[in-house]
Design a protein around this nucleic acid. Structure first.
Lengths: 349, 349
DNA sequence: TTGTACGCGTTATCAC
DNA sequence: GTGATAACGCGTACAA
């Protein structure tokens, strides 16, 4: 029974029900397959019948049900992107770029936020693979990712970004945070700083660990020994610490440092102590911020594009034979140091 | 023929092929429907057989194909969100909130960027409705939206955000940009400004028009007459214009104004002319920017939540009887003025 | 050139 | 309790 028996007719058109190929076929007085041919632009249809079909399609307002088609063909032409939080501007930029590549390949993009909760990540990943997305790009939570092995094995192309996964082998796009921190701290040292702090140390977070390693490397290369109190800094202790410069492991730490050092009521630019601030992650108006803010950044779009390209390389059958995937690739995206005068010991000018 | 005949066995497990309910059924020695019952937690299955089925599911690594299920049930449990550009931080925040509500309702979210191109919007919207998404949230491009009427009529719950659509009636969530601009300009007037400019006037853009109306209202209320040159300001002309304050219609204009007025090489804080700057849209470190930056903002999350709630209200059958939808609602979200000392005529302190 | 029969993986309707 | 069988909307052999 056609669904055209449902829905109500309003002015000859239908409301509340979608016509199917069957409906189009019966209206045009042809077989299902003929409609299919016309819709898919396949050859072997008389212009006359094609016109009849086209008219029926127009009359009925028929639009092919892509879900049904994709069930049949076995592909969904959809990708999933799972990340901590899409309201983070880097993540948003990354997402945008993935989407761009996806569109180029005729694919749509699902998105989901984990809030860094492994359970949420797993829930999202499972929901997406249950829909048989063709590919998955994941900014992994700190948790375990062995649960994805079966899906990858079953054919879901999977790429991790920004953090390496745990318990599973897969293509990964990382950022050279270590190198960035190393150069940033070396920059501070070159400008005369010796007592350099690290704000935002958190061994549980991958990026923080990488940055800390870069910090440690730069200090060691200069023959400097970091005291414990410098590397376990908090915004509260910053004002009373002996450091003359501080490396901040993220935007939230950079702003916290600025606020901690700001003199209440004195207006922007006035610091209670002359501490040079270098942070990971740039800000929109950073060049108008006082004191000067040197930053280390990377290009999220580059990460997104690289990840999407790795994904499509898998999808386009570059993997090995018979489900034995090619060995997983690991790409690293560079960081950039943007000096903004915080190299020197700052002070009111 | 079951697909288990394909794929290669590795250690008793399968690779490259996904087991179906049929496979589970034959392995557990039960009928298809019984598996379905177990998977869906339906009653009427002996604990013994249930266990057999569950074991088979585990052995095979079976995971229900959601696409197939949704084809059968007629719903996709998916929403679509179409916007200008997801790398915009407001859009990203909005998206996050929509996603949050979607997850609460057990739905997944498709996202797509239009870059303000009507063709891209239409392409995305059509792709999404072709997949029969249950709902669509759209930040409309300047183009025509009559093409969506058929989809809305066919049952796709649709909500527009931030800009009203053209050529179609639907639920819409807007921002009180007009009121925001009005209060901001009144604020400047209250602080003694008389020659107030408007930067970023663009009659083609909805927001710009709204802001301009608010600007005009505030000026009129104070008995001030804006000269043409004040309202057709460009960053280049700003430094040589007679205005003592300028209202910027967006972040890009605010930054442009700052850069236009900055004295090269003089460091942040120094302006070539003492112009008070008020802008639409806040910045992360705005309170550390010199000169002070007063802004008008709104909460993107509020827009997202309201939009999603309107959507689900439709979906949960709050519409009228038999496809006659309830009259479309129009919600307005407030704006907020954050004064940061740019009310007074600024100058080097 | 056009049509028939079947399958994709699931749910729904009925029997048994 | 359990199981054939028919849908859902579409693609694809293969026949006519």
């Amino acid at each position: 029974m056609s669904n055209l028996s449902h829905g109500m007719r309003i002015g000859g058109k239908l409301s509340g029900a979608r016509p199917t190929m069957k409906d189009v076929a019966s209206r045009a007085g042809v077989a299902l397959k003929t409609v299919s041919r016309v819709v898919n632009g396949e050859p072997g249809v008389t212009p006359a019948t094609a016109t009849r079909v086209l008219d029926a399609i127009k009359d009925l307002g028929f639009r092919r049900n892509e879900s049904a088609r994709l069930l049949r063909t076995g592909r969904t032409s959809a990708l999933g992107f799972i990340a901590d939080d899409f309201s983070d501007c880097d993540t948003a930029r990354l997402c945008r770029e993935i989407e761009e590549v996806a569109i180029e390949h005729g694919m749509l993009l699902f998105t989901g936020s984990t809030d860094r909760e492994p359970e949420r990540e797993q829930g999202l990943a499972m929901s997406l693979t249950a829909r048989r997305v063709d590919g998955l790009i994941i900014l992994p939570t700190p948790g375990e990712h062995a649960y994805l092995a079966a899906e990858i094995d079953a054919g879901t192309a999977t790429v991790f970004v920004l953090r390496p996964p745990t318990g599973v082998e897969a293509d990964t796009v990382l950022v050279d945070e270590r190198g960035g921190a190393r150069r940033a701290v070396a920059h501070l040292i070159a400008h005369g700083h010796r007592r350099i702090g690290f704000l935002g140390s958190d061994p549980r977070q991958y990026r923080s660990r990488q940055l800390m390693q870069g910090y440690a490397a730069a200090m060691a290369e200069a023959g400097l020994v970091a005291e414990d109190s410098w590397t376990t800094l908090t915004p509260q202790r910053l004002a009373d610490s002996p450091v003359t410069a501080v490396f901040c492991a993220g935007r939230e730490h950079t702003t916290a440092a600025l606020r901690a050092l700001a003199v209440p009521g004195a207006g922007p630019g006035a610091l209670s102590r002359p501490v040079a601030i270098v942070g990971f992650g740039d800000f929109d108006l950073a060049d108008f911020v006082r004191p000067g803010l040197t930053v280390v950044t990377y290009d999220p779009a580059e990460v997104g594009r690289k990840a999407a390209e790795l994904l499509f390389r898998r999808l386009d059958g570059e993997d090995g034979l018979d489900g034995l995937p090619a060995t997983s690739r690991r790409v690293e995206v560079p960081t950039r140091l943007i000096p903004r005068g915080s190299g020197e010991i700052p002070g009111p000018r």
